[in-house]
Simulated scan of single mutants.
Amino acid sequence: MKLRTLGHSGLQVSEIGLGCWQLGDDFGPISQDTANEILAAAQQQQVNFLDTADVYGAGLSENRIGQWLANNQHNSTQTIVATKVGRDAKLFPNQYTKQTMQNNIEGSLQRLGVDAIDLIQLHCVPREVLFAGEVFNWLEDFQQQGLIRFYGASVEMLDEAEFCLNYSKVTSLQMLLNIFRQDALDKVLPLATSKNVGIIARLPLASGLLSGKMSADRQFSAQDHRNYNKDGAHFHVGETFNGIAFEQGLALVEQLQQLLIEHSELDFPTQLNLQQIAIRWLLDLPAVSSVIAGVSKSQQLINNAAVSQLDKLPTEITQLLADFYQQKVRQHIRGGI
């Protein structure tokens, strides 16, 4: 597994990370054994970057990570855990105070069983809270207290990302970024690079659309946001299927797969599937520090990790994907960009 430096933190993170939302049973229940198998597979594949949040399973995801770290101390010394704060009901939507945020961070410390959190990220806090800017002063104080080592922000919109880059101690931005969400390449990624801020790419497969394995008859569990938030009823619509209506997303994936077949004459490894292409596309972006994808089975993590060893995509394919996004995809994204 290749490592990349996360912004100006100096932290060396695996370029393939593990998103741990699913470890909170938020996509449907998974057993403790399965959770441990996934975390063990991450360690075996040298995936050292885990991304979670205090709100995932009301702390269950953090608890499971903390228990695994405690039981595997000889293997976990290089594990870097990023968590998030800001969407728990004690804060969201309008109860943001420094003390309440500190209480939540201390709760995360306890569940993870660590003395300091490697990376804390604002968790898609309301725009008015973010743009007021006071939360960054709080984070700086928490850093000085030793509660956290570094801090960043997870955002939904590009203007939010740009705003965060005004703060010199922000070390990372976690954002929606994939071949069906490319606008950040124009301004945000170059700006982040100039300020030495690492990009953590979330939704690399657009909630599974870019796995190329979904069909119209796919059923999602009641707990799965792809069921209850497909039209943005509970949180930002962009977090589910990239903001694209499910049926439209399936049609776009089919068109893209056909387009790749039609251009097989290009210098392109045709044995790659769409999932590998989607992850490799992200890894080819120098601004990206880590690509975090959630998995429900250890084999999925192994498959994701293998993309780290693949060659870069040919320029012709990258351009093909850029043109397809602008001409076919962008117009279907709901909720803004």
Rank of each mutant, 00 (worst) to 15 (best):
N303K: 11
K312Q: 11
K328D: 08
A322D: 12
A322C: 12
Q327M: 03
E316T: 07
L313R: 00
L301V: 02
L310I: 03
K297L: 12
A305M: 04
T318C: 13
Q327K: 07
S296H: 13
V329I: 03
A306W: 04
A322Y: 10
E316C: 06
V329R: 00
D323L: 14
F324S: 01
G294D: 13
Y325M: 05
S290V: 14
K297W: 11
S308F: 03
T318G: 14
I302K: 12
A322K: 12
V307Q: 05
S290K: 07
L313G: 00
Q300H: 03
S308R: 15
V291T: 08
I333R: 03
I333M: 02
Q327V: 04
N303A: 14
G294H: 09
I333H: 02
I302D: 13
V295G: 11
P314Y: 14
G294Q: 08
S308V: 04
I317V: 02
S298Y: 14
R330P: 01
K312M: 14
L310P: 07
Q326Y: 02
Q319L: 14
L320I: 05
F324D: 05
I333T: 03
R330S: 05
Q326F: 00
N304V: 06
V291Q: 06
S298H: 13
Q326A: 04
F324T: 02
E316A: 09
S290H: 11
T315S: 10
D311F: 06
N304K: 05
N304E: 11
Q327D: 08
V291K: 02
V329K: 00
L320F: 03
Q319I: 15
Q309S: 11
S296K: 15
Q309E: 10
S296R: 11
K328F: 03
I302N: 08
V291Y: 05
H332D: 00
N303H: 13
Q319A: 12
K297Y: 15
A322R: 12
Q319C: 13
I292D: 12
A305E: 02
Q300D: 06
S289M: 05
S296F: 11
S308A: 13
A305L: 03
A293I: 10
V291C: 09
Q331K: 09
K312G: 13
E316M: 06
S290Q: 09
S289V: 04
V329P: 02
D311T: 08
V307Y: 02
L313W: 00
I292T: 12
A322H: 14
H332G: 00
G294V: 09
Q326E: 07
K297N: 15
Q300M: 01
L320M: 03
V291F: 05
Q309W: 14
A293K: 15
P314M: 12
I317A: 00
E316W: 04
